[in-house]
Amino acid sequence: MATKNLSEYDLTTVPSAASMKFGIVVAEWNYEITGALAQGAADTLKRHGAKDENIIIKHVPGTFELTLGAQYLAEYAGVDAIIVLGCVIQGETRHFDFICQGVTQGITSLNMKYNKPFIFGVLTTDNQQQALDRAGGKLGNKGDEAAVTAIKMLALRNDLK
């Protein structure tokens, strides 16, 4: 369980995103949550210098579809990094387990296949309140954290080139 505000970080440790291009793929399912995550990610990218025209946001029906949506962004949008945002809330069936496992493995595979950052910003919570707390609520916004991670991973790659 998160114990700190996900939106609190040292601004001086985040490189400029002015020359970076980002894709954000957002699940429409639980959109009250995922829309807030997307807004947080986009705002954070801009705060660090990303231009509006270098932030491409696309939507997919649900969390399971995030993997293919992220692959499409990698293949057709010419982005440097992809931020993947979704929300799966535990229910009464094992559906939660299958979706979480599938999207986690899918996004991990994309990182390796494309040799570029695919940032996992999928909330996997026990209930709606936990999701709200992490999508702009008392624990901040996981979208902010995903955006900072994307910037830092691109900076790492650029430093090693």
Rank of each mutant, 00 (worst) to 15 (best):
V14G: 07
D80P: 00
A38L: 03
I55E: 06
W29Q: 10
T63N: 06
K142Q: 14
I89G: 01
I33R: 07
F120N: 10
R134N: 09
I119H: 10
D133S: 08
N158G: 13
D52M: 12
P117Q: 13
D159C: 12
I33Y: 12
K161D: 07
K142A: 13
I83C: 02
V25L: 10
G106P: 03
Y72T: 11
E92C: 09
T63E: 15
K161Q: 14
A146Y: 03
G121F: 01
I151L: 08
Y9I: 07
D126Q: 15
A27G: 11
A147P: 01
Q90P: 03
G91E: 12
G23H: 06
P15M: 06
K4H: 15
S19T: 14
N5P: 13
Y72P: 06
Y114V: 01
G78T: 15
K161P: 06
I89T: 09
L132E: 15
D133F: 07
E53R: 05
R94I: 09
Y31K: 09
I57T: 11
L123Y: 04
T13A: 03
Q71L: 04
I56M: 07
L154T: 11
L156W: 10
G49L: 04
E92V: 10
A81S: 13
A18C: 08
A135K: 02
G143R: 01
N30Y: 14
A135L: 02
G143Y: 00
G91C: 09
S7M: 12
R157V: 09
G137H: 13
A146C: 08
T67H: 15
A70R: 00
R157A: 07
A150N: 12
A42E: 14
G136V: 06
A18F: 14
V25D: 01
L123W: 05
L66R: 10
L45C: 11
